[in-house]
Nucleic acid binder design. Structure first.
Lengths: 193, 193, 193, 193
DNA sequence: TATGAATGAGGCTTCATTCAT
DNA sequence: GATGAATGAAGCCTCATTCAT
């Protein structure tokens, strides 16, 4: 069962990278967590970086799929940020992993891993951008720099579901959506000068 | 001149940690960049972690000082986000370093370094929070969850001056301020339903 | 063959510790002498001290075994120092190693190694003491301070087979026994024949 | 005061070598204990080994002097082992240092240090040997192998005042003498009283 | 194909020694 | 002459990777 072992390893690596980061993950760890021999890791993957790459790719693919779904369903263009975030939120853990790996990659950054990771981010941010553009065309929002807005939305979401939860307070999904509505949709200024 | 060599090393370490991260930085590297012998690093610092800690502390202290200034000058309470960001922006590089180190620490996190870093973030986010609360009392803004808002403002700022610039486009200070005004002060919704 | 490599290393370490002492022995040395890679040493032993400990333990165990034999065979109680020394002498090299390691341990003494080493010495000296006490009860010898006598016998034996041989003259087994008979038997014998 | 500093260092090194051994003694340690700068050690001594050598030499010289005295006073030839040991015992600490250094030297043994140390031992053992020979000529003792006997006497003395005291029980001078009388005098005396 | 014992490059740290002040 | 900051060789240990079974 080639695929089976490979998946065990991928799963274990995913968990380990997420918990301990790239340098903090040893092949021994992964092998043990996957319940396979150390050598087996090297029959399934070229080397540590290749394994990292594969973990990344899997997350990327899953997230892309979610977004492909999301964009199909959203016909009105960002009208209901609520449901979009709702959808997004079902993959909170995946995003948390992405955030962790992004840290890693920024820090240790083998070029290739970096590229792979940026691919996800680009894809997701670009998707948000498309939604924003559509929404503006529909006259729903005012958004002169959709690139920056999309970037901010995505990054803010990540920050909230990773660090904020960790260091300040856990957030219910409703609170999370409220925060987004407040800040991005409406703004905090009381009387708009 | 004790302080001189120590500062050379601190400076070099700062650059190296910023570029390659904690694990990615070797003492040999630092020594070479500081143009001192490897052993010299160990006359100035107990060990690698101590050096890291010192780099962190220096940034922390500088940032704390900036913020102490900033809060004094802002008498109206967040009225002019413009000038606040302006002030903040003079320390862009320091923040970029903090962001990098924060990644490191989150990933490799020796407890002590982690504590030190959170201290800065707490301090800065708390400071923003105070400004927000004051502004709300003055009726300038509507802000039901100042903690979250402060967190978002700080993190968004960091994201923009680090990753956004790196991956998408460099931002002029004016653009940066515009982005903040647009998103946080006013919001992007055209007619608020 | 796990035990095989482990034994190669143990053997090599034994020789190296014996020749160059603890500090004077490098892991590289041991690895080279054992004809294994440096890393292999660390698959078999936790660290250098652990290796030292293991070497010590092996000698200890061997010597304990010899003594267990010796005491069984001596039914008359130290009557025939000749045969006792004879027996003992078959492990001359081991004792020489113990002496060397004892020097090391006294000098560099990690507590644990020290404990281990004293265990052997205590065991062996105590055994001699028991023999002395038995012999005295049987009226064979006069020995008011068996502790001191046992200590002296053991240490003298060690000195003779290590330093004396090294610095003055090699000793035939018969000479060694003669020396002991002369100095200690005649000294401690109650009725002088 | 050249001699003064040099003596401070010699004194400090003596203590440190005695306490921590050769490898266990750092030049920093010695400098601190001598209350001089580290560099000063190198103005007074060529290098660490030279310092060690000097410490050794000083002990050697002192002990030689004691023995020179001892042999003059003993006109009867080993008749009164009591008074000989008595004399010897006033230099117990020196002997303990010699024992410690001897361990060191055996372990780390630079040839030169080894030679130096053996010189003391040779000198002292030889002196004992002369006494033994004289005593035998006078018909006081029976001693077919004075070399070995002298060696044993000296080593036994050292063992008793170092290890035995440390590990078993402190010895009063009287006890020590009794032990020697018991083991060696009665053993080697021709006519057993 | 799966395994894990074996490997060695590379990193941190210590400390004897030098040299500018 | 005295000093101690600076140095780098050398030692211990980790871990990605290989290879014989």
């Amino acid at each position: 069962m080639v695929k089976n072992k490979r998946n065990q390893i991928l799963e274990a690596a995913s968990r380990s990278f997420s918990l301990f980061g790239y340098k903090g993950t040893t092949i021994d760890q992964v092998a043990k967590m996957a319940d396979v021999g150390k050598g087996t890791v090297y029959t399934a993957f070229e080397n540590k970086e290749d394994l990292f790459h594969a973990v990344l790719q899997r997350v990327i693919d899953e997230l892309k799929a979610v977004f492909a779904e999301a964009i199909k369903e959203d016909q009105d263009g960002f009208e209901n940020i609520t449901s979009a975030l709702d959808e997004l939120h079902t993959f909170k853990e995946k995003h948390q992993l992405v955030a962790k790996l992004a840290d890693e990659v920024r820090v240790l950054g083998s070029e290739s891993a970096n590229k792979a990771l940026q691919q996800v981010e680009y894809a997701m941010i670009d998707l948000v951008k498309q939604l924003l553009i559509k929404a503006e065309r529909n006259g729903k929002i005012h958004c002169p720099n959709p690139q920056a807005t999309a970037f901010l939305l995505y990054k803010s979401y990540l920050s909230l579901v990773t660090e904020f939860e960790e260091n300040y307070a856990p957030l219910e999904k409703e609170e999370l959506i409220d925060i987004f509505k407040l800040h991005f949709m409406h703004g905090i200024a009381k009387d708009e000068a």
